[in-house]
Simulated scan of single mutants.
Amino acid sequence: MKHKTEKLYETHLYQPIQNYFIQRDYEVYGEVNHCDLIAVKENELIIVELKLNLSVELLVQATIRQRLSDLVYIAIPKPNYSLFSKKWKNICYLIRRLELGLIIVSLERNNDQVEIKIPPSSFDRKKSMERSRNKRSQLLKELKGRHGDHNIGGSHNTKIMTAYKENCIHIACCLEHFGPLSPKALRHLGTGEKTLSTLNKNYNGWFNRIRRGTYTISELGKKEIHEYPELVRYYSELIGNSSD
């Protein structure tokens, strides 16, 4: 990078990118009608917006430039965090989603490097959704396993009610009501296909196997399920109705 004591400006990005396109036979101009850099070759018009950091303002500015050309890049200095991180991958996804290009400039003393990380191209949303069909299926499966909405959107550092946790509560309520039961008997009570897996994994420590094929609720389970009174009430009523 430039010397640590040297303040970095957007203008430091201009010359390396200018040289990059000139070497590829483009005519390059700076500050044309509010565009930071324009590169022209025959009928090809490239617009580059220069910024020291990625921001919403930069993305908005670049998408406005797409009114003038399909070939719009944003250019930033190479980030100081890993380009293999989830953060960077998500940023690249957003840039592709907006059909923008991305230029990374490594500002080394006397040896600036310019790299086209993402070329501008159309984004195939249907293809993207097709690649994520398994995640979509998992999302819908999770919803089917929940009864009601017991989480507050945007919560952080709080316990989240999941379909797995609800299944644990259902099983625990059955065991508390009827006493020791087999996975088969629990499934007959509506605890679902994953009953045996839930009992065996026992992530919460709510279940005890008292003999082969028979389970009971642990003391910890008896205590902790009552932290979820609405669901305990719901499943207790469901169990009561099935017993009639």
Rank of each mutant, 00 (worst) to 15 (best):
70 D>Y: 08
237 E>R: 11
56 V>S: 14
16 P>A: 08
75 A>E: 08
120 P>S: 06
195 T>D: 07
60 V>S: 05
60 V>D: 10
51 K>P: 05
129 M>H: 10
18 Q>E: 14
155 S>M: 15
102 L>D: 06
101 G>K: 06
136 R>I: 06
200 N>A: 06
112 D>R: 09
152 I>W: 13
154 G>C: 08
70 D>I: 01
99 E>I: 06
25 D>L: 05
83 L>D: 08
235 Y>S: 01
188 H>Y: 14
218 S>N: 03
208 N>P: 01
120 P>K: 07
237 E>K: 12
210 I>R: 13
151 N>E: 07
230 E>H: 09
27 E>L: 13
201 K>I: 01
125 R>P: 01
22 I>T: 13
244 D>T: 03
63 T>C: 06
134 N>E: 08
211 R>T: 11
206 W>E: 00
34 H>P: 00
100 L>E: 02
73 Y>I: 02
208 N>A: 01
169 I>H: 04
227 E>P: 00
118 I>F: 10
170 H>F: 13
216 T>L: 01
197 S>G: 02
216 T>A: 09
96 R>L: 07
57 E>H: 11
195 T>H: 05
53 N>F: 12
51 K>N: 05
109 R>M: 10
3 H>I: 05
176 E>P: 00
142 E>C: 02
228 Y>P: 00
102 L>T: 05
54 L>V: 10
197 S>W: 08
21 F>C: 07
197 S>A: 12
120 P>Q: 07
16 P>K: 06
18 Q>D: 08
109 R>P: 04
58 L>Q: 04
21 F>W: 15
223 K>M: 08
178 F>L: 13
200 N>C: 03
220 L>C: 03
236 S>D: 03
128 S>A: 15
31 E>P: 02
203 Y>T: 05
3 H>Y: 12
107 L>N: 10
134 N>I: 03
127 K>D: 10
201 K>M: 02
180 P>K: 08
79 P>N: 04
55 S>N: 03
91 I>N: 08
29 Y>N: 07
153 G>F: 15
205 G>I: 00
174 C>F: 02
238 L>P: 00
213 G>W: 11
67 R>A: 13
2 K>Q: 11
2 K>M: 13
181 L>H: 04
170 H>C: 03
107 L>P: 11
42 E>D: 15
132 S>T: 01
230 E>K: 12
78 K>R: 14
47 I>H: 15
114 V>W: 14
226 H>R: 10
152 I>K: 15
